[in-house]
Design a protein around this nucleic acid. Sequence first.
DNA 1: TGCTATTGCTCTTGAGTCCT
DNA 2: AGGACTCAAGAGCAATAGCA
Length: 286
Amino acid sequence: MNDEIPCQKDPQLTERIEQFSEVLKTQAHRLDPFGMTEQDFYDSGIFEGSIQRVRGQISASMGEKKTFVKHILNHMQDGGFIQEWIEAGGSNRHDYSVTLNDGKIAAIELKGCLDGNNTNISARPPHANEFIVWSVCQNKGADPRHNVWSGIHTRFSADIIAEEKRVDGLVVWDWLCGTAARVCPKIAGREDRITEVGPYRLPPPCIYLFPGTIPSPRNNPTPRPQNINDVGILDAMHRCFGGDENELNKVHFEAAMNGVDLVRTTKIVRDGIVRRESKPTPIRRS
DNA sequence: TGCTATTGCTCTTGAGTCCT
DNA sequence: AGGACTCAAGAGCAATAGCA
């Protein structure tokens, strides 16, 4: 049983989504306001075009995500866990820049559900002492286990090793955490662990600590995952929102040569237990 | 061959840039 | 100031590779 993250998707919701998709596909003509025949309606492209349009609108909207991050970072600042933060804006390849209490700069890249090629696109800004990715997934029907694994192994590990991009860690945390859509085992019977921030009632974040150096087959095959106090921004979140030591995920990336192939092995360890481990898999990039 | 794991594609939106 | 244009991002899933 894979356990890359404690929560899981709601099977009933998935089932209903699948059922309703079928209803849409077969009954959409009944909603046609143009008075077409059923045949004409499905031939017209209106159905497919509308689906794409709605999907694009949902994908492109960042407003809710930014509101969430703003609440969180303000809360951290108010509590004295960070000095200040700014939105990086525009041409930058990261989204937020946070000044930690010790004066170091942490850059944050905001991402979605992590399943998608776009997850690879990020860059550690030169002024940053640390660089983390924050996954904010607003899709209630998404599968967090699939997405976390996809993000960490298929996207990040390949990118970190092949492109020599250093990423210090990952936070998986959004306003669906702890709601009925994404029940959080961390707060089962532990209401006292919930933090209220603006309109949100949040469990502690899920934190993944990556190695502090880039794995390389000859020079650095098995770099160790960092500790929480090595990554200031993650440490601040962890403390601010009441995370437990045994909830921290250590992510191991190992690099090796298999013949001419560069292969990597990804392993997620939490509370001393291996939660998921890949086989040594080649990095295929076109 | 058939299944699973991994990687790339597709589409739309919206923010930023560059003009007038 | 405001319009036209450019381009990156999010999400699901199609395509491909690997393995039994």
